[in-house]
Amino acid sequence: MRRYLPSLSALHAFEAAARYMNFTKAAEDLGLTQSGISRQIRNLEDFLGTQLFHRSGPRLVLTETGANYYRDLALTLDRLEEISIDAVRGRSVDTSLMIGTHPTFASRWLPQRLGSFVSSYPDIPVEVTLATPSTDFETTRFDIAILRGAGTWLHARSIELFPETLAVVASPNLVPLDAKLDPLQFSEYPLIQNAGRPSLWLHWLRLAKLSYSGRIQGTRFAHHEMIINAAVHGLGLAVVPVLYVREELKSGQLHMPFGSPLRSDDSYFLVYPERKSHNPNIIVFRDWMLRGIRRDSMEPLKANF
Rank of each mutant, 00 (worst) to 15 (best):
Y4M: 14
S9V: 12
A10L: 00
A10C: 13
H12Y: 14
A13P: 08
A18N: 02
E28T: 08
G31E: 06
T33M: 01
Q34Y: 05
Q40T: 00
L44T: 05
T50I: 04
F53A: 09
R55M: 02
S56A: 06
T63Y: 03
E64W: 10
Y70D: 13
D72M: 10
L77P: 00
E81L: 02
E82P: 03
I83A: 07
D86P: 01
A87H: 11
V93P: 04
G100F: 04
P103R: 07
T104E: 15
L110F: 12
G115T: 14
P122Y: 08
D123I: 03
S134H: 09
D136E: 14
E138R: 14
R141W: 11
I146E: 04
R148W: 11
T152A: 10
L154Q: 10
R157F: 09
T165L: 06
L166I: 10
A167L: 01
V169H: 02
A170T: 06
V175M: 02
L177H: 06
D178Q: 09
K180D: 13
L181D: 08
L184R: 14
Q185G: 00
E188D: 14
Y189E: 11
P190N: 10
N194P: 00
P198E: 06
P198T: 09
P198S: 05
L210G: 07
L210Y: 13
S211H: 14
I216T: 06
R220Q: 12
M226G: 08
G234Q: 02
L235G: 13
G236C: 01
L237C: 07
L237K: 06
V239K: 08
L243N: 04
L249E: 04
K250L: 09
S251H: 12
G252D: 13
D265P: 00
Y268H: 12
Y268G: 02
L270I: 12
E274W: 05
N281R: 07
I282D: 02
W288N: 04
S297M: 07
M298G: 00
M298Q: 06
M298A: 12
E299T: 13
P300N: 07
